[in-house]
């Protein structure tokens, strides 16, 4: 059993300051290629397995745009 996390980004509020990307202790985030409706490159969770759910990005986001959610527990085979 392994707990995985997902990161929800409110693209109406994200300004693309990259603070979450700079501070992520496990480098699980990356800046997306696509544009958000505000015209910036939003961050996204690139490596789900790396994210340990520390919620640093959620607490550091100056615009309240990030929410870390716990995913359903997935049973790993073997």
């Amino acid at each position: 059993m392994e707990q995985t996390y997902n990161i929800l980004i409110d693209e109406r509020w994200c300004k693309g300051c990259k603070l979450c990307y700079i501070h992520c202790p496990t480098q699980a985030l990356r800046i997306a290629e696509r544009f958000s409706p505000r015209g910036i490159h939003p961050p996204e969770l690139a490596l789900v397995a790396r994210c340990n759910g520390c919620r640093l990005c959620e607490l550091l986001c100056p615009d309240f745009a990030i929410t870390v959610t716990e995913e359903e527990e997935v049973a790993l085979h073997g």
Binding site: R12, K15, G16, L59, L60, P62, D63, F64
Partner: peptide, 21 residues
């Protein structure tokens, strides 16, 4: 009122965030 008027990389949003927590 959101999003805030602050520039990219300004820490004022963080101060608001911490006060609310």
């Amino acid at each position: 009122m959101m999003p805030t008027i602050f520039c990219d990389g300004c820490g004022l949003g963080n101060v608001l965030n911490y006060t609310l927590w």
